[in-house]
Design a binder for these strands. Sequence first.
DNA 1: GTTGACCCGTCTACGACTTCACGGTTTGGA
DNA 2: TCCAAACCGTGAAGTCGTAGACGGGTCAAC
Lengths: 205, 205
Amino acid sequence: MGALAARYGLSRSALLYYDRIGVLSPSGRSAAGYRRYSPTDAARLARICRYRQAGLSLDVIRDLLDRPAADLTEALATRLEALNEQVRLLRRQKRHILSYLRAGRTPETSPFLTAERFVELLELAGVSAAQRTEWHAAFERSASAEHQAFLEFLCLPDSTIERIRQWAGGRAATPEEAPPAPPPAPPAAPGPAAPRTPPRPAPEP
Amino acid sequence: MGALAARYGLSRSALLYYDRIGVLSPSGRSAAGYRRYSPTDAARLARICRYRQAGLSLDVIRDLLDRPAADLTEALATRLEALNEQVRLLRRQKRHILSYLRAGRTPETSPFLTAERFVELLELAGVSAAQRTEWHAAFERSASAEHQAFLEFLCLPDSTIERIRQWAGGRAATPEEAPPAPPPAPPAAPGPAAPRTPPRPAPEP
DNA sequence: GTTGACCCGTCTACGACTTCACGGTTTGGA
DNA sequence: TCCAAACCGTGAAGTCGTAGACGGGTCAAC
């Protein structure tokens, strides 16, 4: 048992737990009551580990392994949905933190990736503002959800994301909700030119 | 009490829990033993909620509120670290799932954002392969950690990420570890030109 | 026979709550 | 004045997947 656990990078207690909840029960016991895992059991454990790498819950995994009608694709799709939601939540937390940590710093002195910095890099590579605009528009047109995700990845505040997406043509902004404030320019028409500062590795994305 | 909970979007049980663990104890009780929250308590709760939005644990929050020496910036930095690690884990799970869900589909029929699709969008906007190459190089040079994060955001497999980063000049690849396989072309020198397919909203990032 | 190195089952702990059960208090309307 | 609904209190147990501790049994080699 210890050998099996070690082989799959699990602890003894994990295997005990799997046994207890019926996800993986050894097919036999020794005379003294020791768990005996057959090669079939090991194969089952291998599947369990693969599914757990995808973040599936042990409940779902049990269904997948025991119920012939269970649909792996559907389970993965459901998990993907939850995963996206969770990433979104974490990113929101990240934005909260960054907005505090960045307070009082200019984007140039910030050790974090900002939209401004991202745009600087594009500038450096010779991508023009017009190209960036067109890119946002194409992104919004053909993959609006991913566009949103990408803007969230840059840790932009919600209001800025909303503004960029509207301005990229995803949905026409109603005249009433004109730009509520003059926030930092959207990443496609940004601030300074190529930075003079020497490249230095940044600690945090 | 119910009113306070509702005002801050919490449940009654959450406030009970906060009281129990000493994060927020009401400053008084009514004759019948009902909790009485003063405006000071409410202000404290407001801070608690803000910190929780950043994902700080209640333990840490209690220290922050009660110990004068506690350092908010440090707590947030620590949390940011954990957050990044967690996002990395979730993204790894996502890659596992996508690699399964995408199996047997061509990138064109996949409803998910792929690196190929991302590059298509850049192509559409008129960003050349040379520009993309230069962009990767600049990204790697001046913000390698963020470059890594960005490539992970695209859910590329680790091997591809490694290859792109080496090829972008971040670190010279040792001759021994030449490309182990001919995997899909890196996003900066990708496949098809602008797609003929009509834009359609994609369900998932 | 003894000494380690294994193994067993059971229990507790983690975080941030929620749910349940049972009972007291307040409040509004008839 | 009475009743019911809505509120409040306490306490216990459950969630999820594991880690670790405890006390004791088993096994191999020496």
